[in-house]
């Protein structure tokens, strides 16, 4: 296929399926982005979760240490 045939097909394709990204859009998505940023869920690091899990497991296994920990706090 030569360039002329390709150009012909391209022109026909553009008339059949008009380009969309022609720069006519003037929207502003920032307000939606801002709302999303403001409502983002609190993210907890895996290390913090693991630490909390270990502490909970420790209290379940050795409940006697709870008063001691509370006293230290």
């Amino acid at each position: 296929m030569n360039d002329r045939e390709k150009e012909k097909l391209t022109a026909l394709l553009q008339s059949a399926v008009p380009p969309m990204g022609d720069g006519a859009w003037r929207g502003d998505l920032w307000p939606r982005m801002r709302r999303r940023l403001d409502h983002r869920p609190v993210q907890v690091a895996w290390f913090d979760l693991a630490l909390a899990g270990l502490a909970a497991a420790g209290f379940i296994a050795f409940p006697a240490v709870i008063p001691w920990v509370l006293f230290q706090c």
Partner: peptide, 15 residues
């Protein structure tokens, strides 16, 4: 950066 690039990204995606 959002204000600078949102239109470009939108046109790219809609295309």
């Amino acid at each position: 950066l959002f204000q600078r690039h949102q239109a470009d990204v939108y046109h790219w995606v809609v295309g």
